[in-house]
Design a protein around this nucleic acid. Structure first.
Lengths: 195, 195
DNA sequence: GTTCTATCTGAACATCCGTTCATATACGGT
DNA sequence: ACCGTATATGAACGGATGTTCAGATAGAAC
């Protein structure tokens, strides 16, 4: 018995990636087997290989899709007039975009070491491109005197690290609303880069 | 042939934990086999079980040792008189302690999900205890007007996240000295929690 | 110098792994 | 109504996994 119902090419593919995404995020890439992913989709392990050449490519695809989504979504935003407003926009965008995609974010940060060197290089370049867009905001603001930081690169990494911390504890429906969290973090970020 | 040289009980134990520490940090708990650890020590896989009941306990032991070390080392510090000085001390301590133990830190943050629920609970409690010591500083400072934060819990997590970011990029002998890094981060942390 | 025991070996256990492939079949196109 | 092919099965591959254990031996104790 094969193909128990209908033609599923365009449905099975996304389902496999969704299952892999969730399982990788929950248990880690190395701890998840192809048979586990297949079972989650309701298919035999061999069928996965109609949609991915191997397990590694599945991980890479998930990370790459996420980073492309991040970069292109941010690129579509209208650029604010001032550096301060640009930073505020970045903070809000970063928090909201990432909180909406907890699994993707978790994988993108935790499974980097399970990428082959080539795949790692590509993902790393995308991450750096995203960081650069924040650093550019800080540089611009520094030039016009809106910000005062000792080192824009360090400040960039510090701000992103601070914002990423939100993902480790924020849960929708908790003590604080998303708006409140965004406001509090914006206050702290703003103060940390201004005199 | 057994025990190829001497009695090694008090030497093999630490060597196994050191090997496991390095390998877990490099490749991840799930991706490292007991045979790999044994080979690194120069022993057969079966010999490991004279020193750990199983692989899980080996991971737990590494994490627990690290957290105990962190808490007891911090506890031994002399408490500064003011909240601002206490915060400054915390920032310096945190950065230096963690930068000196990159493998332990990496494991303590990345391998939490590979702990059994009970083990996870215990490690989590230790981490929370450490976070609480920072929150206490912020609370005290808030009371006497030295700090101005919207929410001490959120500020605590934000500050720690920011400081932890250092571990992902700092390399000894790089562009910046440890003193410079500490100074820059202290500036940012201080500004983020003061008016 | 003999005995005793802590320590290690090496083989074995059952089970899992990623991946391949011959085979079967349900559907889209004719 | 039939064919061709995209899609799935299920078995098989070699090898790795965590863990156990009987047997061997080096060093400590006497």
């Amino acid at each position: 018995m094969a193909r128990t119902q209908g033609s599923h090419s365009d449905i099975t593919g996304p389902r496999i990636r969704k299952a892999a995404l969730r399982l990788f995020a929950q248990q880690g890439y190395a701890a998840v087997s192809m048979r586990q992913i297949a079972a989650d989709v309701g298919v035999q392990a061999g069928a996965l290989y109609n949609y991915t050449p191997d397990k590694q490519s599945l991980l890479y695809r998930l990370m790459n899709d996420h980073m492309q989504d991040l970069l292109s979504t941010y690129a579509k935003l209208e650029r604010p007039a001032t550096a301060l407003e640009a930073l505020r926009q970045f903070v809000g965008f970063h928090i909201r975009f990432h909180l909406e995609r907890p699994d993707e974010v978790f994988i993108a940060y935790m499974e980097l070491r399970n990428l082959t060197p080539e795949n790692f290089g590509e993902i790393e370049a995308l991450r750096r491109a995203y960081e650069d867009s924040l650093e550019q905001i800080l540089k611009d603001g520094q030039e016009v005197g809106a910000f005062l930081v000792a080192d824009t690169k360090m400040a960039t990494l510090a701000v992103i690290a601070m914002l990423n911390g939100v993902m480790t504890w924020y849960r929708a429906g908790g003590r604080l609303s998303l708006d409140e969290v965004e406001q509090v973090y914006w206050d702290m970020v703003r103060r940390s880069v201004t005199a």
